[in-house]
Simulated assay, not measured.
Amino acid sequence: MDEPDAVRGPGTPEAGDRAGAGAGAGRDAEREFAEHRGLLHAVAYRVLGSVTEAEDVVQDAWLRWSRVDVAAVADTEGYLVRVATRLAIDRLRSARVRRESYVGPWLPEPMITSPDVAENAVLAESVSTAMLLVLEALSPMERAVFVLSEVFGYSHAETARFVGRGDVAVRQIAHRARKAVEAGRRRYDADQATRRRVTERFLAACDGGDLNALMEVLAPDVTMTSDGGGLTGAPRKVIRTREHVARAVAVLSRRRPYGSHSRVLQVNGGPGIVVHAGRTPLLAITLHLRDGMVAAVHVVSNPEKLTGVAP
């Protein structure tokens, strides 16, 4: 990959100089940006754990790109990934401060993902709510380096240019990040067919109000974490054990508004449940399995965090 900073002249976003914009007319700036938009969002989302923040990063990256002499950019992907990564790191630093006063447990914003993500084990795990929670333990720089190198396969030299650090420093950061992730991650079932079958059984038990059927799919030591942000009636503490989680899920099911409907969709790299009232998403549930049973339940009902599962 070419040097992402390889731009000739003063028309870089940092210089804020629009004078060279016309020189790039031979290349379609909008088309080139559109080709990389999905990658930029994927990187930013994994660094931030927020759909809305990732979309803001992509928008800011576009604003910077629109001021660049694109004809002078030798490597569009490298340039845009560098810009998006640094924007995401800055946003994560300020987001961490806001999350300290968050009401109740904080969970990543759920997001509808394509079947292609589910077919790639690395991508599917990297976008799962379980992994995104593990990444919360990393510093913003460690998280960005881990995402770029371990998820998207950029070399240490490329990652170093993206984050503005030296090669040796990035290797050390990557090593620390890998150790922290390995220490914090829990191994969950990855088979998509099994996950979908259990998710459908879980949903059928909820819809039918069958507490016994629900308990049959829950592991004895299952946990349930709910994120309502203080805006809904979500429990503000983690619920533990099969009996308590089953009762909490049953209560949650009974509280669904009349006329709402639930569906199994691809959420964060695997089967998840999204409940809608009309076109308004009410909550999203992701299940994490161990030995074919539900070991962890993540429920997001904060309406400000459901844009990624809106139809």
Score class of each variant (00 low, 15 high):
Met1Trp: 01
Met1Ile: 00
Ala6Pro: 03
Gly9Asp: 02
Thr12Met: 00
Asp17Phe: 01
Ala19Gly: 02
Arg27His: 13
Glu35His: 10
Ala42Asn: 03
Ala44Cys: 09
Glu53Ser: 05
Arg67Ala: 02
Arg67Asp: 12
Ala72Lys: 07
Val73Lys: 06
Val81Thr: 01
Leu87Pro: 00
Ile89Pro: 03
Arg96Glu: 13
Glu100Arg: 15
Ser101Leu: 13
Pro105Asp: 06
Pro105Ile: 04
Pro110His: 06
Glu119Val: 10
Ala124Trp: 01
Glu125Ser: 08
Val127Phe: 06
Ala130Gln: 14
Ala130Leu: 12
Glu136Ala: 15
Ala137Gln: 14
Ser139Met: 02
Arg143Gln: 10
Phe146Pro: 04
Phe146Asp: 01
Ser149Cys: 05
Phe152Leu: 02
Gly153Tyr: 00
Arg165Val: 13
Val168Thr: 14
Ala169Tyr: 08
Ala174Cys: 04
His175Leu: 13
Arg176Thr: 08
Lys179Thr: 10
Ala180Pro: 00
Ala180Ile: 03
Val181Ile: 09
Arg186Ile: 07
Ala190Leu: 12
Asp191Arg: 11
Ala193Phe: 11
Phe202Gln: 05
Ala205Leu: 05
Ala205Met: 04
Asp207Thr: 10
Leu211Gly: 00
Asn212Tyr: 11
Met215Ala: 15
Asp221Val: 14
Thr225Val: 15
Ser226Trp: 13
Gly228Asn: 08
Gly228Gln: 08
Gly233Leu: 03
Arg236Leu: 11
Thr241Cys: 03
Arg247Tyr: 07
Arg256Cys: 05
Gly259Thr: 06
Ser262Gln: 13
Asn268Ser: 12
Pro271His: 06
Pro271Ile: 07
Gly272Met: 04
His276Cys: 08
Arg279Ser: 15
Pro281His: 14
Pro281Thr: 10
Leu287Gly: 08
Met293Glu: 15
Val294Arg: 04
Val297Glu: 12
His298Pro: 06
His298Ile: 04
Val300Cys: 14
Glu304Asn: 07
Glu304Arg: 13
